[in-house]
Design a protein around this nucleic acid. Structure first.
Length: 807
RNA sequence: GCGAGAGUGGCGGAAUGGCAUACGCACUGGCCUUAGGAGCCAGCGGCCGCAAGGCUAUAGGGGUUCAAGUCCCCUCUCUCGCACCA
């Protein structure tokens, strides 16, 4: 090929791919299906972010590589365009999201995504905001409802008094409203919930067997937050039983007081006469505190004595009951037994209010006194009656619980942090929740034949402060008739959480043409679960957990025959600029279009993959893209017939064959482990080698075109064509390598004396130790170091190294 | 606080327990050029040395090993996740 002009080359191949349908795969005839999924973007008005490009290119490389290996690769992409982002941005611009979103999508796809050369079949694009899509999002809701996975309950929402609206959790930053910086309050409202807790154990246990990064798994484990312990009942003098959850029932003898959450209803029953005013005051103050204030660890503990006493079931000790906001109503039973000697929070509280601290687990010598600091480690029980001497956790826990269980005062219990998923959003820009409320029939799901419930185009989509969706103001939407009894009814006016749209989108891609079902059974059987899912770890919990959960629910309901949606998930890293996060305020946002325009998409792709680790993230430097353009220029110059005739016979030199074969091996291996930077470094070495030795080889050129094709697809196509090949390079195959060529007849032995490199000898491979010795001992350099010393030991590493140990 | 990951030249970063610093950037010198924000060649961790060579160096300290950036223990620093979760 002639002088490499990325602009012309890339435009040419963009058109060619589109014309020939190069990126399409026959979904029904594919014999070796490989579903290569990347997390679909939210099409922001700001345009594609360099982080998106980084993520997509890394995924695209896998898709293209797999295709060259002979797989039928399906690589779709779409747009996640419902939600707060779009709605708020439209509000800010004084425009309507229904107008802005299609514009943004068109810009993303036509001007940006198509330019970076992804192997995407755009005929299968998904857009979550079109009725053809959200009809099935609503179908998911209805299906979940019919199968007992959805229910209605009161729940807390974030309320912004400034904007007079409900905010999503993501819009609340440090307890302040993202838009007006007012302090966000909690409000109780009727909400729809999905029973994510129905599969809490499956969601947790299956993680152990999953091919995900440890980082991602840990995030999910923490979110589900399973902990095992016991429920213990304490009797309150003259009052009811008070149940607590504890992970350390072995420390019961050290429980010197109890604490209940200020929201706990039992307070109304147990507060002693004369204490009511203090309690009421404390509870009012606690209610007014924001969650972050309340959970601020640096904040001093507060609390108030209820005047009530409880009886410790193990030793009948009379212990006071306090109310304090360090105990949360939302976890466990909302009440705890406090063991200040062995829990740092209880310890802090006990010190502040001068409550007794009783040590019941022996600490190792040298540990601080429990009056100074709580001891949470291992040890033997003490001050615990007949349990003294037992190993606290391993022996004490079962012994204490079993004793109390016989009296019906305790049972083993497992606690979770995971909560059911609140899916109601009192906003406009989302799929209306497909439910009708009838006085006679209650909450009725909209029949499938009536889906979708269309989101009406309304001008006043701004939230008004009523706490309801703007849709509630529209009688023509709001008023309807009951699908069951035909009587007057009203529609649910909330829309569903954006995460519902994205929890199932990958089922839709292979089935987009089916207008009468969310996903086709045959297609799903063939293409799912997803073979490889690549995306950001910021979705480690919410999106990935919700989509796993939905898969299990659909499986239980009989719609899927598998229960995990992704065979493999790989989290890519985050790009920073000059060592820091990119942000508008720092003004260090990288605009991909500028680089693509100046150096070409291929150079930009190659730079993003070269600048650092794909899995850990990298540091974007301005000069880098240009340097990669230089590499591509050198590659073209070394490989192209236009820069001089290529030798048609295979390269002859053993050294060149070694480089060629070891590069092919290493590049494939590196792509498989997502080590793109080293794969590129290997290719650079090969290019350097053939440039330096002025090797002009058709075979090497053809191999290099294929090696670089996942990274620089346009350039690879051009090079491939210029070498006289018909058709796309992606319809060829990944080059093979010959292991024999990687084995050289002679290798450089490292000779160490006492572990330090003293000489290097070129020796034939496969030499016996005696033969090596003869050569090594003949070296004057080596002799200098062992002369006059006693040779104690010789270590041989075949074809690599010999270490002489001398004294 | 708990959990996960990381710390290597001026910079981005390489190294299945076996030659630390691959590859690239920046820099320095040279060639070519009317010119260079182009191209090519060479050098490039630190210290000593004309050189040959030697010593030293992977956050700090200890250990295992013939051999440690890599494995183990302690300390420090940074990033991410969870966080008054009993």
């Amino acid at each position: 090929m002639a002088k490499y002009d990325p602009k012309a080359v890339e435009a040419k191949w963009r058109e060619r791919w589109e014309r020939d349908g190069t990126n399409k795969v026959d979904l029904d005839r594919a014999e070796r299906p490989f579903y290569n999924l990347m997390m679909f973007p939210y099409p922001s008005a700001e345009g594609l972010h360099v982080g998106n490009v980084f993520a997509f290119v890394g995924s695209d490389i896998q898709g293209r590589y797999r295709r060259l290996l002979g797989y039928d690769v399906f690589e779709p992409l779409g747009f996640d365009a419902f939600g707060m982002h779009s709605e708020n941005f439209a509000l800010k611009r004084g425009r309507h999201p229904a107008e802005m979103v299609p514009e943004n999508i068109a810009h993303f796809r036509e001007d940006q995504l198509k330019r970076i050369g992804l192997m995407v079949d755009w005929s299968r694009q998904v857009d979550t905001t079109v009725p053809e899509y959200y009809r099935w999002t609503q179908w998911m809701f209805v299906t979940l409802m019919k199968n007992g996975f959805a229910y209605r309950d009161r729940g807390q929402v974030n309320w912004c008094p400034g904007c007079k609206t409900v905010l999503a959790k993501e819009q609340v930053i440090d307890e302040l409203c993202e838009r007006c910086s007012s302090k966000v309050e909690k409000r109780e409202m009727e909400q729809w919930f999905f029973r994510t807790t129905a599969f809490k154990d499956e969601l947790l246990d299956e993680l152990d067997r999953m091919d995900w990064s440890e980082r991602t798994k840990t995030a999910q484990r923490q979110w589900i937050g399973r902990s095992s312990g016991a429920d213990v009942s304490f009797r309150i003098e003259g009052g009811p039983e008070l149940r607590v959850f504890t992970t350390r029932p072995d420390t019961l003898f050290g429980a010197t007081y109890m604490v209940v959450s200020p929201e706990h209803p039992v307070l109304d029953e147990i507060t002693a006469p004369g204490r009511e005013a203090d309690l009421a005051e404390y509870r009012r103050r606690a209610a007014s505190l924001s969650e972050s204030d309340r959970q601020d660890e640096k904040r001093e503990k507060t609390g108030v004595f209820t005047g009530a006493y409880a009886v410790n079931p193990v030793n009948s000790a009379r212990i006071p009951v306090w109310a304090a906001d360090y105990v949360l109503m939302g976890y466990g039973t909302g009440a705890i037994m406090a063991v200040p000697a062995h829990d740092s929070r209880d310890h802090e509280f006990a010190r502040k209010f001068d409550l007794p601290i009783v040590q019941v687990v022996s600490a190792p010598p040298g540990a601080p006194d429990v009056r100074e600091e709580a001891y949470a480690g291992e040890g033997k029980l003490m001050n615990s009656g007949s349990f003294d001497g037992l190993e606290a956790k391993s022996e004490g826990i079962p012994a204490v619980v079993e004793m109390l269980a016989r009296e019906g005062k305790a049972e083993f219990k497992t606690m979770y942090r995971l909560r059911d998923w609140c899916v109601s959003r009192q906003r406009y820009w989302g799929p209306p929740i497909p439910v009708v409320y009838c006085e006679k029939c209650g909450a009725v799901p909209v029949p499938e034949k009536d889906l979708p419930v269309l989101l009406p185009y309304i001008e006043d989509f701004k939230p008004d402060g009523s706490g309801s969706s703007p849709l509630k103001r529209h009688a023509e939407f709001y008023n309807t008739s009951c699908p069951e009894c035909g009587g007057p009814a009203v529609r649910e006016t909330d829309v569903s959480d954006n995460f519902l749209c994205s929890a199932w989108y990958f089922y839709r891609y292979p089935s987009v043409e089916f207008g009468d079902r969310p996903f086709d059974a045959e297609r799903t059987k063939k293409w799912l679960p997803v073979d490889l899912y690549v995306g950001g770890n910021e979705h480690a919990v919410l999106h990935l957990l919700y989509s796993r959960w939905l898969c299990k629910a659909l499986n239980k309901a009989g719609f899927l025959d598998f229960s995990e949606p992704y065979r493999r998930f790989v989290a890519h890293g985050i790009i920073v600029k000059d060592g820091g996060k990119m942000s508008k305020s720092k003004g260090n946002i990288v605009n991909p279009d500028e680089y693509v325009g100046e150096y070409g998409a291929d150079a930009f792709r190659v730079y993003l993959m070269f600048m650092g680790s794909y899995l850990e993230g990298g540091d974007f430097r301005d000069g880098g893209v240009k340097a990669m353009k230089g590499f591509l220029d050198r590659l073209v110059a070394a490989c192209s017939p236009a820069s001089g005739p290529l030798d048609p016979s295979p390269p002859a030199g053993a050294e060149t064959l070694f480089w060629l074969n070891s590069t092919v091996k290493a590049v494939g291996h590196d792509i498989e482990r997502f080590s793109y930077n080293t794969a590129l470094a290997r290719m650079m070495e090969l290019v350097n080698h053939i440039t330096k030795h002025k090797i002009r080889s058709r075979e090497i050129s053809s191999i290099l075109a294929r090696l670089v094709s996942p990274f620089a697809p346009h350039l690879a196509e051009e090079l491939w064509e210029s070498l006289g090949n018909a058709g796309s390079v992606f319809d060829s195959s990944w080059p093979a390598y010959d292991e024999d060529m990687i084995r050289r007849p002679e290798v450089e032995y490292v000779v160490q004396v006492n572990g330090r490199v003293r000489d290097k000898l070129t020796l034939a491979i496969g030499l016996a130790p005696e033969e090596i010795d003869a050569q090594v001992l003949a070296s004057p350099t080596v002799m200098k170091w062992i002369e006059g010393k006693e040779l104690v030991k010789k270590i041989y590493v075949p074809d690599k190294l010999i270490n002489l140990v001398v004294k």
